[in-house]
């Protein structure tokens, strides 16, 4: 057996990596198509606020993170529905408010330490079985949601008004999508880090939207690229002794760059 599989923490990292690599792009397809990619960043910072409260009150940080991201998801979608402010501005307001609260609370908790860093940048050494069970449960919920509500997700991503006029309950679908995105971000923190998880929601999707024809194939390809990036990135991280979250995200960015370069060359050859 290769050395990499002889460590329990690496097995846990691979399981976590596969789950995060599948979950993030599966939701990301619908976020990118709605031009809501930034919601991932905003919810990441909200998750960080949850972690800060977790550190302050000595509770399990992911639970506080789930509560915080769900609340923020409801707030963001309500603001978008009521058009209280433009969507991108609403996301920015949430992002900075959350970050400000996080900084204050972390300071109060005396929490600028290694524990915080494990959430910011991920730390595969600290991924435990509880994290994995939570991720697996979330994966089951997300897959059920995406498959069962596929027509609603597809229609409301294509055009909000057209979806409404077809009888799709757009607000409800958006709300669940935002809440599940928040949950995915929160539970992915230990694997890739709160600052980088947004990349796995967006980058694999950017590749698949360039290449795939058909929405189902686009989702499948994005998930495959997410899983592939996780496995490859973790392997590199192990042997090169570099940060796992960074290696995973750099792998997916590498795939994007290669795809664009190939398109460019193919375009030149054909022209």
């Amino acid at each position: 057996m290769p050395e990499i599989f002889q460590y329990d923490f690496m097995i846990r990292a691979f399981v976590g990596g596969v789950l995060v690599g599948a979950l993030a792009p599966a939701l990301g397809v619908f976020l990118v198509l709605r031009r809501l990619a930034l919601i991932a960043d905003s919810l990441s910072h909200v998750a960080l606020t949850g972690v800060a409260f977790g550190l302050l009150t000595k509770t399990f940080p992911p639970i506080a993170g789930l509560l915080a991201t769900s609340t923020a998801a409801v707030a963001i979608e309500t603001v978008r529905l009521k058009r209280l402010m433009p969507g991108d501005v609403a996301l920015a307001v949430v992002l900075y408010s959350a970050l400000a609260v996080a900084v204050v609370v972390i300071g109060l908790a005396g929490g600028f330490n290694v524990d915080l860093f494990s959430y910011l940048f991920g730390s595969i050494l600290t991924v435990n079985n509880t994290d994995l069970w939570l991720l697996a449960a979330l994966a089951a919920v997300v897959i059920t949601f995406v498959v069962s509500f596929y027509p609603e997700l597809a229609q409301s991503s294509f055009d909000t008004d057209l979806a409404r006029v077809s009888g799709v309950r757009v607000f409800g679908v958006n709300l669940v999508l935002a809440i599940l995105t928040g949950a995915t971000i929160t539970l992915s923190m230990r694997v890739v880090g709160v600052l980088l998880v947004g990349a796995l929601i967006v980058v694999p999707v950017m590749v698949s939207l360039r290449v795939a024809t058909g929405l189902r194939p686009a989702i499948g390809l994005a998930v495959a690229i997410g899983i592939g990036s996780s496995l490859f990135g973790l392997t590199i991280a192990f042997y090169a002794n570099v940060a796992a979250g960074g290696a995973i995200v750099l792998t997916s960015v590498g795939i994007l760059v290669l795809t664009m370069a190939t398109e460019y060359v193919v375009g030149k050859v054909r022209a």
Partner: peptide, 16 residues
């Protein structure tokens, strides 16, 4: 309903 433009046209919507 046929709107003047749909959001999906501008976002590389992959559907056939």
């Amino acid at each position: 309903y046929v709107p003047q433009t749909v959001e999906g046209i501008h976002t590389q919507f992959p559907a056939t």
